[in-house]
Simulated assay, not measured.
Amino acid sequence: MKLTDLYIDKKQIYSSQISDIYSAKDVKTNTTVCLKIVDVDFSIPPHSIKREIQLVKRLSPHPRIIDYVGGLQIDDDIILVTTLYKHNLSELVKLPRYCKRTTKFDFTNGTHAYIDRNIIDESDIKQWLKQMSCGLKYIHNSGIIHRDIKPSNIMFVNDDITQPIIGDFGISYDVNNDINSGELATEKYIDVCTGIFKSPELLLGITDYLYEIDIWSLAIILTILYSPNFESVLIKQDEELSNDEIECVISDLHLLSNIFKTFGTPSVTDVTSELYWEELTSKTSHFTKFKLIEHNRLDDSQLIPRCEDKSIGFLFRKMTKYDRTTRVTSEEIYSELTNQ
Rank of each mutant, 00 (worst) to 15 (best):
L202C: 07
K188P: 03
D148V: 05
R147F: 04
A185Y: 11
P228Q: 13
K150A: 08
D191Y: 11
T207A: 10
I213N: 00
T186M: 14
K188T: 05
C134K: 12
A185F: 14
C193P: 01
K130D: 00
I125D: 02
I144V: 14
E183A: 13
I206Y: 04
A219G: 01
D159L: 03
G170P: 09
I190S: 02
H140R: 11
N177L: 09
K188F: 03
P228C: 09
L210C: 12
E212P: 09
G205N: 08
I165L: 12
G182C: 07
N141P: 03
V192F: 03
Y226T: 12
I220M: 09
T162H: 09
H146I: 13
G143F: 09
K198C: 10
S217N: 08
Y138Q: 04
D160T: 15
L203Y: 01
N141T: 10
G182P: 02
L136I: 09
L202K: 01
D160A: 10
E201K: 02
L129T: 07
A185I: 13
D174H: 13
Y138H: 12
K126M: 07
L222Q: 11
L218V: 06
I165A: 08
G170H: 02
G135Q: 11
I190P: 00
K137L: 11
W128Q: 00
T194S: 15
E212N: 10
E212W: 13
Y189L: 06
L136C: 11
H146R: 07
I161T: 10
D208H: 08
N177G: 08
I144H: 10
P164W: 13
Q127G: 01
I125Y: 02
I196M: 14
Y211F: 12
L203C: 02
K188I: 02
N158S: 15
E231Y: 03
P200H: 05
D191F: 04
L204W: 06
V175M: 13
Y226L: 07
I224P: 04
K137Y: 04
S199H: 05
H140W: 12
A185M: 14
Y226V: 13
L210S: 13
M155G: 01
F230T: 04
G135W: 07
N158H: 14
C134A: 10
G205A: 03
N180P: 00
S227L: 06
K150P: 08
V157S: 14
E201W: 01
V175K: 10
